[in-house]
Design a protein around this nucleic acid. Structure first.
Lengths: 222, 222, 222, 222
DNA sequence: AATGAATGAGACTTCATTCAT
DNA sequence: GATGAATGAAGTCTCATTCAT
């Protein structure tokens, strides 16, 4: 009726809510990484985010919903970064190289995030609503992957890629190998580095280099 | 395996114990694959193996011990297969190719086993006695991996591999990419096949082909 | 293998299990009555039965299953008692009178049980697997209720009931009224008795008397 | 209802408050019926009434208070209807018949309300402030029930009822049976109708008919 | 050697209610 | 007067494991 005390309402609440939401998500993301998505408990998330258990449920109706929320954020960011990276390149090989660079950088600088994604790979094997993930993927990177598929054909056309690659198969195969390599290295991370004394992204870059060598059209002169 | 404490009992006992052990391990392996190592419960394993819960503890002191036992078996087999495969080949490239073949075949024919291993990758990130796994690895494929490391140098020497590969880095990087690709495909398996209509091992073979192309010394003629 | 220590196993365990089961059911039945089926908590039931919470779940997979188990027992007993009572009577009116007597006695001596059943009446209104109850009913009193339906026709034939009763309707209507009266009195029980100073079964008997008077064929002489 | 504290505010406020109150009560009544008084949550009531949870507490200090408020309304209405119905009749039997008619009509047309009341019957058994209900009853139908008690004596006097009825007992007994029958049928409602294809009020009317036959003085002629 | 019984520790979630704005 | 946020207290159920027989 009277708008007296209500004028300033909308905004501040919204801001507060968003902040709380973030705190929960950040705590969760860290714990999911440290302890694994299955093993991290609501109690831990709660304790880490400084919010009481019952309060968390005012923000997310489920432990699962927290996972999905994180996933969505990660996806959106990744898609944006990939798009930006590939846009600059001219040849197909250049685009692929740019892609690989983004992945290497993610491995170096956002390792926790890559590890988070790594947990999903093994989950695909199980009864798990992968459809929902695919839906998110679809929503966020509308044509993203569709475009990847065209890269091989484009690369053969522009002369940057070998002629004997299979437009329908190679890109998929290579992307899978790169993602598999990246995620595995993110997970093995510290252990590998302790053992071999080299940062894992160096390993990833070397593998990428080999793959790119394998994709590239034979240099004529030499 | 060891015959140590069996002197007190007749053969039949030992045979019986071994049979029971196997039943438990087989049930566990299946469930670990179907439901995930964390989610599969002791109750499920016992139900599936036909042994009562409390009896299982006469064979394995832990759920973890079951995991380790399976792991050990898987490892031993894998090492043997790899050794056999590489022995035939002459050049380093030939050996690597043979290795890749074994991996592709495992993906096609022992996918559950590959998936089982895939679960460990994500676990490396967590507090988890990886040392124990490394110990097993060491015991079983004593020089296995050590030998892999020498492959690059050997390949450069025998002229089958590019000269600009890094003896200390490349093999590691490539092996990681191959394993990452293989395990990821094993996990995504059915989903991918349903979507693209191609068996995943074909994708693996294509990725391997590219990698091998990248490793191979430039063909002189041309 | 050796049956040494196993010979005496089967029986004692079974007996123990049955005893425990009973303890739980008895505790639950009492609490369901005292506090209501919804309000009685598992914690209360376990405390009252002297068994730990997790142990209860070895006997009943659910709180609901406890309810069903009690229900089944109550039903079986009630059906047996009704059958025994009606068997003695000759005329239809006699059978109905016998039935009413059993109900009055239940109200006097097994009031808690009647109250337990009373809780279900209100639940029928809600989403609730009444089918399961009907299934139990069917299993236990196979023809029980079917036979009731025939009573009116039989009573008209044998001259003990009014001729203008509706064979398809009256028995149902009357049984419902009797059960409704009985269960309501069981629930209101103590309160009514405190207020009016009369045991509730007397009220039930008076209502029954009126009903039976209403059913009975007009006495010819007069 | 009382105008006490309303002097400070203008009319509109009072009207608004009354409207809000109604919305809450109506939503609650519906939910109490659909889900049961125990199971219906504040959140549901809140959502259904369009008022925010915390606002509800400006109108009712408790979930219980909502129940009581509904109860009071239901009682007042019922009492008024009964009074109106009985006033027209001349003989005691006529009054009772009128009463029964009201009950049958309520069952047909206000079934939700009857079901609401039915929930209280089972609750009487429990620790529950029945005194408060009795107080409401007293306030609303001051002499209501007191008068019922006189009906039997009146009926014997005016020749409409059997002489062998007990003035202190029968009316109570019969009223209980009627209420028990009515409420039980209201609760079983749809289930019974689906099964037997007859509306439940027909069953109630048949039971009432039998009861009235049982109460009525023997017709001399015939 | 096998197993029935028992259980501590904890997981996730719900809900009526309060409080500051 | 209205409401967003917060929460204590509880509730149901699960699970790996132990122990006595």
């Amino acid at each position: 009726m009277r708008k007296s005390s209500t004028a300033t309402e909308g905004r501040p609440y919204e801001a507060h809510r968003e902040r709380q939401r973030r705190r929960i998500l950040e705590a969760a993301e860290r714990l999911f990484d440290e302890r694994g998505m299955d093993r991290a408990t609501m109690a831990e998330i709660t304790a880490a985010s400084g919010v009481r258990a019952s309060t968390v449920y005012q923000y997310f109706s489920n432990k699962d919903e927290i996972v999905w929320a994180i996933l969505e954020g990660v996806f959106a960011e990744a898609a944006a970064r990939m798009k930006a990276a590939t846009e600059g390149a001219e040849t197909a090989l250049g685009k692929i190289t740019a892609l690989v660079d983004v992945m290497a950088e993610d491995l170096a600088r956002r390792r926790a995030t890559v590890r988070f994604m790594a947990q999903f790979d093994a989950m695909y094997a199980r009864e798990w609503p992968a459809e929902r993930l695919i839906a998110i993927e679809a929503r966020i990177s509308k044509r993203g992957f569709a475009e990847f598929r065209k890269l091989i054909r484009a690369g053969i056309a522009d002369g940057s890629l070998r002629r004997d690659l299979d437009p329908n198969l190679t890109m998929h195969a290579v992307m899978n190998a790169l993602i598999g390599a990246q995620r595995r290295l993110a997970s093995l991370g510290n252990r590998v580095e302790k053992e071999y004394g080299k940062p894992v992204d160096e390993l990833f870059r070397e593998a990428s280099r080999v793959i790119l060598l394998g994709l590239r059209a034979e240099t004529r002169e030499k």
